[in-house]
Design a binder for these strands. Structure first.
Lengths: 357, 357
DNA sequence: TTGAAAGCGGTACCAA
DNA sequence: TTGGTACCGCTTTCAA
């Protein structure tokens, strides 16, 4: 016999619908009908087929099905390889929602958001039915490739301001910024500051906008501002700079919990100040770490579960009907009151729909 | 025309190898040869084919290829839906290693480790070439199903003591436990304690074994011990109990960073003790959070990158040759010296191969 | 080196 | 309600 390329050695033959058909005494087509929901099958036949299938441990081959239906029921989930727990939660929730709709998640991570072009070829050759982009900017090249292939895209926790052609779902960041401002102002703070994430992300920009709008509306002033790149180190560095200003800020709203934690660590350990007595700190996301005693971080909880199912819902909708108009949804977050920010009166807390923990 | 079931509306026709063949003036078979590495194609033909493919934006359909080759080049990555950043890093690294070998990662997460049976059907019907199980125990039912289907499994960061039939790769937990013990004893601690993870995980059991062995070898005593379930809350509760003992432990080794952090938070905030002056704390994993100023946690770094590529390597090896004998690899971790544990003399630090940060 | 043709394991149309 | 049959897009003999 010809020697085999070990790289190509085929797997042992699997049970197919033909085997089931033979055993159940029906045609292969009938077996197919019994497993795909469409087409009529008599109860008697279905019974025998199911039984035979169970005996043979038959499972329809999703790959073969995908080939003929042109629907792989695979959805790519694209994510830059950030390490923060928030994104793991997002990943799990997206998986849950996809699974509930009968889709599989093909994970694509990449060194940085800039490398999204590199993952698209894989995504295309595996004939995914849709793409969910989380924590990455979409390059125009990448989006063009998907459009060519007629693959819908939904952005989660992110949207592209310049290009309106993708659906997106994220937190209501403007509302969140306003809430943070209202909370801090009601607690009597005078010198507010903001630590932004990456400059060109809508998530950060909108949190900033809501925050600044509300502050200037209520107090007529502008908060101080630094950029923290959504990282712990960035948050630390930004806080270091902000706390050197005169007047020194007495409250900081951070565009993410991780930056807030970085800021707190600098404020307390490096500058020897107290939180919230000297400075109040508010974060965003309600990441796992925010509830740890060491931080006890007041924050605005992103509703990851809702975001995930809305994203999947929008995606399946577009996959099914190819609705041409992109939608945008903004899920309101809830202010979680913990100990890192001075508390305003109970009435304000209630008005903001905040919950104490 | 018959009305269409909107659920089944097919995607617009994609570019196939036939289109490329026509344009390049060759047969479809030749196009196939040009894209799969096997078979001869003249340079001239290859040139024209590649050109035509580029013009038409042709990408081979991996689904169709998988159908005929019986190799989907899909690998399922199975994970319980824990939220700790460590597992996100692991996920990214596994993806990286898989991608480097030309495999796609099919993400399967589940509510808890116990639900692994539920994900196997998906995994089977998508004809994955292999399964990597991270952060989950493998049920015997699940493993049987995979064996029936002849799908190799590799466990990462976990192994099954009772059943030797799976390959696994993890940290060298015994070595890690010994290092932690040696470090703490050399620093002059007398009353050591251990916070275990889940009772039936090898990861925790081995860390415990190494730790206990070394402690009793050097001091003739047994450390105190509590279980923390690998969670922040579990670590907190365990520390609360341990610190009530007489004599009160003056050093705690925790089977994970997250439990160590939970323990530290209780020790400092609740009991008003100082770390490391009153109690030294050592964790395991070198999770992202361990380096934060607030914790500055001395820990043993799991080498996630090496674990990932070894896991993928073992998996591809078994997929290619179906080597029957399962292998087990234990990757040594490195002790990262930070501020949460009293430091022994420089010589000990060097002898343990520890690095200061 | 190339092309024709037979599948891979299903789905879906059509006629019975 | 069922069976026959033509694909889905690719890989892989086999002959030329």
């Amino acid at each position: 016999m010809a020697q085999r390329n070990k790289d190509q050695e085929p797997r042992s033959k699997a049970v197919t619908s033909y085997d089931v058909a033979r055993r159940a005494g029906v045609s292969q087509a009938t077996v197919s009908r019994a497993f795909s929901r469409n087409g009529y099958v008599s109860d008697a036949a279905r019974q025998r087929i199911l039984e035979a299938a169970k005996e043979l441990r038959f499972r329809p081959n999703a790959i073969a099905r995908g080939l003929i239906t042109r629907r792989s029921r695979l959805v790519a989930v694209v994510m830059a390889d950030v390490q923060y727990s928030f994104y793991l939660t997002l990943l799990h929730e997206l998986h849950r929602s996809l699974h509930a709709e009968g889709y599989q998640a093909l994970l694509k991570s990449m060194p940085s958001s800039a490398d999204i072009d590199g993952v698209i070829p894989d995504v295309l050759s595996y004939q995914v039915d849709g793409v969910i982009v989380a924590s990455a900017r979409l390059s125009s090249r990448a989006s063009l490739m998907c459009r060519d292939a007629d693959i819908p895209i939904v952005l989660v926790n992110r949207y592209v301001a310049e290009d309106d052609s993708f659906s997106s779902v994220g937190s209501d960041n403007i509302d969140a910024g306003r809430k943070a401002a209202a909370f801090l102002l009601a607690a009597g703070h005078k010198h507010l500051a903001f630590i932004a994430g990456l400059a060109d992300t809508s998530t950060s920009a909108d949190r900033e906008r809501g925050f600044f709008d509300e502050v200037s509306r209520q107090s007529g002033r502008q908060p101080a501002r630094r950029t923290g790149d959504f990282t712990y180190e960035g948050g630390s560095a930004a806080a270091r700079e902000l706390m050197n200003l005169t007047p020194r800020p007495d409250a900081i709203f951070c565009a993410s919990d991780i930056m807030a934690i970085g800021a707190m660590d600098v404020i307390r350990s490096e500058l020897g100040l107290r939180v919230p007595e000297d400075v109040s700190v508010i974060g965003f996301n309600n990441a796992l770490e925010a509830s740890w005693t060491c931080f006890d971080l007041t924050t605005i909880a992103a509703d990851i579960e809702t975001m995930s199912w809305r994203a999947v819902d929008m995606l399946t909708y577009r996959m099914d009907s190819r609705a041409p108009r992109p939608q945008h949804e903004y899920i309101k977050g809830r202010l979680i009151v913990r100990g890192s920010a001075r508390r305003p009166d109970a009435e304000t807390i209630q008005r903001l729909g905040a919950v104490e923990e």
